[in-house]
């Protein structure tokens, strides 16, 4: 089956006075229908920039530089997201694509009751008041909130409940794709677990596809089907969650998995050094300044994201056929 969303060569950057600093560089990614795809990487590696670029919600100084994105809906309609005019895009976003930005839990309007915040957009898009209310209540139920909550103001709700309201609003139109950026980062583990399990339930119920963006490897291990590991604006590795955690190929994925504190009292070593910011991405493989396996060509040549069999992809010279055959 063709992917729900096919991303090719997507690059986005920051417009400076003279030039554009690239933040996300030629990302190729197929988001499969019905999957939960986790995007992980250290803070500042470009996860949120990628998410906003996918939604075409970049705001200056962020700019889209190049690439293509093809969305194939179940109803047979296909859209080239980067070619759509803003009006069509707005309609599409509202109807089929849903975005939960980082920190959105705190974005509810403090002076409006939850009901207004949930139904207003629906009514603006042409639903009747009753229909909007019906959809809002159904959505609240998906996240285990009672309809009476519609009468509350945001400050009367706990952080977990506010985040649930945000999720409910995001799924009220039963979207095909939900992009959730650091959805549970500020929440305690019990609430986090409930929310993630609710999200997985929504995927099953709506047949939706979920892109979950996080720097928490535990979250990804618990709910993702596949994982994309990002480093310095590029995808380093892509594979099933079991493959990534059990036999990471890319030296960066290996470092990331190895740096997770675990039970048992063994000290783990963090990755040496720091991730580069977009203003000083190294030439060649961007990980070469921290990589324990660096070889000559890493400093000069950028490794391409290549298939490694069994649906796994890695961008590292060590896994290129000619290097493998010399080894």
């Amino acid at each position: 089956m063709p992917a729900l969303l096919e991303i090719r060569g997507l690059s986005a950057g920051l417009q400076g006075r003279r030039s554009i600093t690239q933040v996300v560089s030629s990302v190729d990614l197929d988001v499969q229908r019905g999957e939960i795809l986790g995007v992980v990487g250290e803070s500042g590696c470009g996860k949120s920039t990628l998410a906003t670029a996918i939604m075409r919600l970049l705001v200056p100084p962020q700019v889209l530089q190049s690439g293509s994105m093809t969305l194939r809906l179940k109803d047979g309609n296909t859209y080239e997201l980067l070619e759509l005019p803003e009006t069509d895009l707005r309609q599409l976003r509202w109807r089929h694509l849903s975005y939960i930005p980082q920190g959105s839990m705190n974005s509810l309007n403090p002076v409006l009751r939850i009901e207004r915040q949930m139904t207003d957009t629906l009514i603006q898009h042409g639903l009747s008041r009753e229909e909007a209310l019906k959809r809002s209540i159904a959505a609240l139920e998906m996240v285990n909130l009672e309809p009476r909550l519609l009468d509350s103001y945001p400050h009367e709700l706990s952080g977990g409940m506010r985040q649930r309201v945000i999720i409910a609003a995001a799924v009220s139109m039963r979207p095909a794709l939900i992009v959730a950026d650091e959805l549970t980062t500020a929440l305690d583990v019990v609430t986090q677990r409930q929310l993630l399990q609710e999200l997985a339930g929504i995927r099953d119920e709506l047949g939706a596809t979920i892109l979950i963006i996080t720097h928490d490897m535990g979250v990804v291990a618990q709910i993702a089907d596949r994982v994309a590991v990002m480093y310095a604006g590029k995808i380093a590795e892509l594979g099933t969650v079991n493959d990534i955690f059990e036999s990471p190929l890319h030296p960066y994925s290996q470092g990331l998995i190895g740096a997770i504190p675990r039970a048992g009292g063994h000290r783990v070593e963090g990755l040496p050094g720091e991730a580069p910011s977009p203003w000083n991405y190294p030439a060649g493989c961007r990980f070469h300044t921290r990589c324990p396996h660096v070889i000559d060509r890493c400093r000069a040549q950028t490794p391409a994201l290549l298939p490694q069999g069994d649906g796994r992809w890695a961008a590292c010279h060590l896994y290129e056929p000619e290097v493998l055959s010399n080894a």
Binding site: N144, E146, L157, S158, M161, V189, V190, Q192, R193, Q194, L196, Q197, E198, A200, G201, D216, M217, G218, V219, V220, A221, Q222, I223, A224, V241, N242, F245, I257, I260, R262
Partner: peptide, 24 residues
């Protein structure tokens, strides 16, 4: 509820349907 960084040790019980989710 700790999200164990091991995809083979996932949460067993689903809390999303139980009474726990109702707490406010």
């Amino acid at each position: 509820s700790i999200p164990t960084p091991d995809p083979r040790k996932r949460w067993e019980e689903d809390l999303s349907a139980g009474p726990l989710a109702e707490v406010g």
